[in-house]
């Protein structure tokens, strides 16, 4: 029982991070019909910036709380600029090109960012200097530490804030309008370019927060960390129904739970025939199953093919 509870806690923490990153994929897809494969690298850049700023501030003897806050804000600012830049350079010139073209530039941007990070921050693993000691708590037999609690709570807060932004503000209305029909939205006086830029910046800010969370949780930062996380989050977005915000959140949490419970129990269930090395396989098995059985995802609506 304790073990089951612990696996659920593990899954929730992992799932919250997937959900935050998945939101970035789904927002961009919802508006442009484009898979921004560079999104995982934006998470990595966010983690790297947070690392550097945190190191500088801690060396300058800043108060720990301020140092964490400033490094997070700096990471968000840099990632927003990066998201804006990526869209301007790699996607906007190709907006009317065949669908494959922006997909290729997306992969190109991803490789460029990865190698850039390798040149700037080096090939080695960096230790993430979180200035708090994260105490562990017993929760009905499961062990949870402060960082993990913070991850789940902050992820929930951010997702609610995002829902509010999309459904209750002017920008949100513009975003929904562009998603539904860009041409009509433009005719109604919506500045499409501004809305798309804002979407990229918003998604990138979420990516920066996710990057901070992953680094704080694992305690290590590496230029390669965005790749797998990006793929998992993409899977989560598809699972929930890509283009659908609630779907991305649901998909993220579900994927975290599936991975954690699956990897935790498959060894016992199959008598050691299959092992926990299938953890990553679960994610992609789920992706394939969803694509075959319910291509629009759990919460996705059947949409006509975009023009």
């Amino acid at each position: 029982m304790e073990i089951l509870l612990q696996q659920i806690v593990n899954g929730l923490v992992q799932g919250s991070v997937y959900a935050l990153v998945a939101l970035g994929y789904t927002m961009v897809y919802g508006i442009l019909g484009l898979i921004n494969f560079a999104h995982g690298e934006v998470v990595m850049i966010g983690a790297m910036i947070a690392l550097t700023v945190l190191q500088i501030l801690l060396a300058a003897a800043f108060a720990p709380v301020l140092a964490v806050l400033f490094s997070l804000l700096a990471a968000m600012a840099v990632c927003m600029a990066l998201g804006y830049g990526i869209e301007r350079i790699a996607y906007r010139p190709l907006r009317n090109a065949p669908r494959l073209a922006p997909l290729i530039t997306a992969i190109g941007v991803s490789i460029v960012l990865q190698n850039l990070a390798m040149m700037i921050w080096g090939r080695e693993y960096h230790s993430f200097p979180l200035p708090f000691s994260s105490t562990s708590h017993q929760l009905g037999g499961a062990i949870v530490n402060d960082v993990q609690v913070a991850i789940v709570v902050i992820a929930l807060l951010i997702m609610s804030a995002l829902m509010w932004l999309v459904h209750r503000t002017r920008l949100g209305r513009a975003m929904r309008a562009v998603a539904e029909n860009p041409a009509a939205a433009a005719l109604m006086g919506v500045d499409i370019n501004r809305v798309i830029s804002a979407t990229f910046m918003l998604g990138s800010a979420l990516a920066a927060i996710a990057g901070f969370m992953v680094s704080a949780n694992y305690g290590i930062v590496h230029y390669y960390m965005g790749f797998m996380l990006g793929l998992k989050a993409f899977t989560a977005a598809v699972l929930g129904g890509i283009g659908n915000l609630r779907g991305a959140m649901l998909g993220g949490v579900l994927l975290g739970l599936i991975e954690s419970l699956g990897a935790g129990y498959i060894g016992d269930l199959t008598g050691g025939f299959l092992g926990s090395n299938y953890q990553d396989v679960f994610a992609f098995f789920v992706l394939i199953a969803v694509l075959i059985l319910r291509p629009s995802g759990l919460l996705g609506e059947k949409l006509a093919e975009r023009a």
Binding site: I3, Q6, Q7, N10, Y218
Partner: peptide, 9 residues
Amino acid sequence: VDFTAVLTS
């Protein structure tokens, strides 16, 4: 990078 599932087991 995440082994919590197998370690919990």
